[in-house]
């Protein structure tokens, strides 16, 4: 190791108080690094004896800034395409209402991403993650399971859809919106492309706050 042949250690030339400062810093950094890595390890490892015993300490340390998830396409990759689709109920100038057809919003994102070497997060992540946020915080009968987070997720999903439709469609004002998730399994390797059928999970109608500015919205 050439480093041993270099100039003598800088620390050797320091006074005692300075060397104490070096030793204390070295100890503190070593402990901090070891503690940090232990916490990150317990956070990313599968739930185990230690991480269950120290769950509170681990979570207090990791959240919010060191949260991480490296289960990339694991344990199994997603094997289905989920498209978020939506339709609206519009109020016509004459006073009547009309229900528009289903629009495949995810499909529009996919079309926009096609042959784009730099897809935007607005196309690749926005709807996809908003839906997983929603489905993580609601059961299949659309009941909230996570308190305020459930409400945040449904408001977020509604706002994304609202923005994409705009205030008017077919000459009428949008008053209600309904979303559904269309899930199509990816056919097994070797199976024919059309061999899987699409399942729909339909969400309730949501009233649109016509005075909404994005700043103030009833929850």
């Amino acid at each position: 190791m050439d480093s041993l042949e270099g100039p003598p250690s800088r620390v050797a030339g320091l006074s005692l108080p300075a060397r104490i400062a070096v030793a204390v810093t070295l100890g503190a950094v070593a402990v901090a690094a070891a503690y940090h890595l232990a916490m990150v390890f317990l956070h990313v490892a599968p739930s185990n004896t230690l991480s269950k015993q120290h769950a509170t300490a681990v979570n207090d340390y990791i959240y919010p800034e060191f949260e991480q998830n490296w289960k990339l396409f694991a344990p199994d990759p997603l094997q289905q395409n989920i498209h978020i689709q939506a339709r609206t109920e519009v109020r016509k100038p004459g006073g009547g209402t009309e229900t528009t057809g289903w629009v495949d919003l995810t499909g529009m994102d996919i079309a926009a991403m096609r042959h784009d070497p730099l897809p935007s997060h607005t196309q690749q992540n926005e709807l996809r993650r908003a839906w997983s946020f929603y489905s993580d915080t609601h059961d299949t009968s659309e009941k909230a399971t996570a308190g305020d987070r459930s409400d945040l997720s449904s408001t977020y999903l509604l706002r994304i859809i609202e923005r994409r439709f705009g205030p008017t469609i077919n000459g009428g004002q949008v008053v209600r919106i309904q979303a559904r998730a269309a899930t199509t399994p990816v056919p097994q390797p070797g199976a024919a492309a059309g061999s899987t059928s699409t399942q729909y999970r339909q969400l309730p109608w949501w009233a649109v706050d016509t005075a909404s500015t994005g700043q103030e919205k009833s929850s």
Partner: peptide, 25 residues
Amino acid sequence: YKIQGSRWEDGTALYYPLHLDDFTP
């Protein structure tokens, strides 16, 4: 985590992302 997945075990895992609409520009 991948080791625990059956698709990674049977050697077909890569096939699926290649058919996910969000990841096939």
